[in-house]
């Protein structure tokens, strides 16, 4: 058994590309988990919905951008369902998300017609693809067609739009809803609407991310969203833990989630390179997320304990 460092270097661009694509999902998770203070499990379903809608439309003859926009809209609808379950049916957000996620399983199968649907990079012009990445590395394609650049530009424009939106009067109201719902109501903010809107926007981003991953890997799969929320949370939490000290601005906070996603995939690639059984990856992710979630809690808990050898009268 020899572990070749060059193998790891070879795999890094792939990890970067995946990290960036999942970074868009991480931005969506940030919007619910950090801005709205809701852990939204719709993500596991809406990620696949985005991929499914994209593949079906593109292979059905729709232009690339139409398929992408449609995937985003499908995500909005998924978020809308969760929002209605929460604010209109009065179901807790956690359970509302699980309900939508379960329902979406059937919806996704309906959209695709079968559990796995591929999109052939030879027949369709895609926005991003593993193939493009490999060809750029081999020098068969100009550098500016690298998926790394395409996704980065897309992320920057998405962050710019979100930064603008959450700085408007309406967007500030959505942030206030997540920060202090009682105060938001007292200031006349329709908090129900704000929550539904936030859930929609978040799942729109998630579905867009799903559509991009589908292109990158060349297929949509009914299981592609399984555990997506945990990866998204991992990205948000890692990004925050590492960059909260320097990234205070809202746009930079969003960017830190993307960086968190990239770090996550580089770490995963590294442990795979160290010959960890891929079947254990989810366990590893769960433990990492649990520990990162615990750190702020522990900090509070132990910082507030009286020091041992002081004042013991």
């Amino acid at each position: 058994m020899n572990i070749n460092f060059l193998n790891l270097l070879d795999q890094l661009p792939g990890a970067l590309a995946q990290g960036l694509i999942w970074g868009i999902l991480a931005i969506g998770v940030y919007l619910t988990y950090k801005v709205l203070d809701i852990a939204d499990l719709t993500v596991d379903g809406s990620f696949c919905t985005g991929g499914a809608v994209f593949v079906v439309l593109l292979t059905g003859g729709a232009p690339l951008w139409v398929a992408l926009v449609a995937a985003f809209l499908a995500g909005l609808l998924a978020g809308f369902a969760t929002g209605i379950f929460h604010v209109f049916f009065g179901i807790s957000p956690l359970l509302a998300g699980i309900l939508t996620q379960i329902g979406l399983w059937a919806v996704n199968l309906m959209i695709m017609g079968k559990p796995n649907l591929s999109v052939n990079v030879n027949h369709f012009r895609l926005l991003v693809s593993l193939r493009y990445l490999q060809e750029v590395i081999k020098g068969e394609r100009p550098w500016y067609q690298s998926p790394l650049l395409t996704v980065s530009l897309l992320i920057l424009s998405l962050i710019a739009i979100l930064y603008w939106f959450f700085g408007t009067e309406f967007g500030t109201g959505v942030r206030a809803t997540g920060s202090n719902i009682k105060m938001a109501k007292a200031q006349g903010i329709n908090t129900d609407f704000a929550k539904v809107f936030g859930l929609m926007l978040s799942n729109g981003m998630v579905a867009l991310s799903g559509a991009l991953l589908t292109q990158y890997q060349g297929f949509a799969d009914i299981n592609m969203g399984r555990g997506a929320i945990i990866i998204g949370l991992a990205a948000v939490i890692i990004g925050e833990a590492l960059l909260v000290w320097i990234f205070r601005n809202f746009a930079l906070r969003l960017l830190s989630s993307v960086i968190g996603a990239v770090i996550y995939f580089v770490v995963i690639q590294t442990v795979l390179w160290l010959r960890l059984d891929p079947n254990y990856l989810k366990l590893l992710t769960a433990v990492v997320v649990a520990v990162f979630l615990a750190v702020p809690h522990w900090k509070n808990k132990f910082a507030s304990l009286p020091a041992r050898n002081k004042g013991g009268l």
Partner: peptide, 10 residues
């Protein structure tokens, strides 16, 4: 903005 319509003014 209490009690006013919240617009998209930035």
């Amino acid at each position: 903005w209490r009690g006013k319509r919240r617009t998209l003014r930035w």
